[in-house]
Design a protein around this nucleic acid. Sequence first.
RNA 1: GGAGAGAUGACCGAGCGGUCGAAGGUGCGCGAUUGGAAGUCGCGUGUACCCGUAAGGGUACCGAGGGUUCAAAUCCCUCUCUCUCCGCCA
Length: 436
Amino acid sequence: MRAYRYYLAMLDIRFIKENLDAVRQNIRDRYMNADADLVVSLYDRRNGTLRELEDARRRRNENAQAMKSPMAAEDRARRIEEGKRLKETIARLESELQEIEASFAAEMAKIPNMAHPAAPRGKEDKDNLEVKRVGAPTRFSFTPKDHVELGQSLDIIDFDTATKVSGTKFYYLKNEGVILELALVRYALDVLAKHGFTLMTTPDVAKTEILEGIGFNPRGAESNVYTLEGEGSCLIGTAEITLGGYYSGAVLEKDQLPIRFAGLSHCFRREAGAAGQFSKGLYRVHQFTKVEMFVYCLPEDSERIHEELRSIEEEIFSSLDIPFRVVDTCTGDLGAPAYRKWDLEAWMPGRNNGEWGEITSTSNCTDYQARRLNVRYRDAEGKNRFVHMLNGTAIACSRAIIAILENFQQADGSVRIPKALVPYCGFEAIGPRRKG
RNA sequence: GGAGAGAUGACCGAGCGGUCGAAGGUGCGCGAUUGGAAGUCGCGUGUACCCGUAAGGGUACCGAGGGUUCAAAUCCCUCUCUCUCCGCCA
């Protein structure tokens, strides 16, 4: 119960004022660049100016009100003079307030969500805490290939032509590769439909304000987002954006919640500066296909539903017989919106001679996104409150394909299809193929 | 893309520059009437922020943003969205 009250108020300026030490500590824990003290002082300045402004407006209204009744010409003239003076005062205070509010909003936007008290404290992904393993790293009686080699030899992925046509970090899927991707998508959608999710395909484009509400930064050289020139919109990096934007500005009825969406979309990421061994092949690409889970729920349900999302991810990858582990993401690696985040990391035999690689991620963002997108629900007393919003990957096709190709490769160079996917693929294996 | 029409509270729908936070209706809530229900009658019914322990007070909001004015739902400009017609198109 304590925890619930704690994050209910999170990111509320009044919460920040009242829990300044905790907010400062949280910013340090997350290695974020934000200044809680500056936010508070800007807020106080804002309120002071607002009070002056409202007082001036009150006097203007009284003055105008007084002029409705007949009066002597010289009294009227005096009133008009008074009105003109007030008009100037109001204009000055308005522009002052606007300036203060702009800096306040900018500083406020930098304040990250609070982290779950149990989330491991740490700076980077090395500090994430492994909490569970399912399956063991695959052993081979031969020297395994990586998915780039397999994709080429089986003629199911073509990186070189994509580089010529579209640039680096793009790819064509070919032949069984195409069917495999579609099978993964359909499989994930079937699992989610069974769990009561509403299936959707979403736009691959969203407005900048929605991206910012979800917690993405569309601007700047280090941004991971492709913006569309002169449109005020961007290519989405994940369907989390379009699914979370779906109810922006809405007041939901309590009994509608939880709302579970499964969204299929393309995902576009600039990945500026990301290169090298670890982003080889399909691991870090500019475009991929993903089925995303998204939930709107009551604050008191979000921790339970976060567990649900994680267990659905585990269900999908267990049923595909892909070895994976679950990590509890450390504070420094959470990103600003997440209160808590679980990653599933699949065993990738071709990655640096065998390594865990992130394959899904599920975050409880509590009311962080809801505040920014203004998504509320009417509670039992009829008060409007912010919902909690959560997201999780069901299948990110490119990375799932890495895990399948590398774990299911056979000595003859072929790749077996996981049993659960065979009905969706219509074949049991890809290859082997003779060179030529 | 071109032409026209429109955008007001939960919904429908009035609105002359000041008497409009906004008529009227519907819905909803409470109460009365009734053996009970329908009906009828009465009262109430937006959001956000600021000040205040509270009671309460103030400010803003009539698609969005600017402008004119002492005063804007009402006048002017820009934009967005919706509808109708035309064009184009998988």
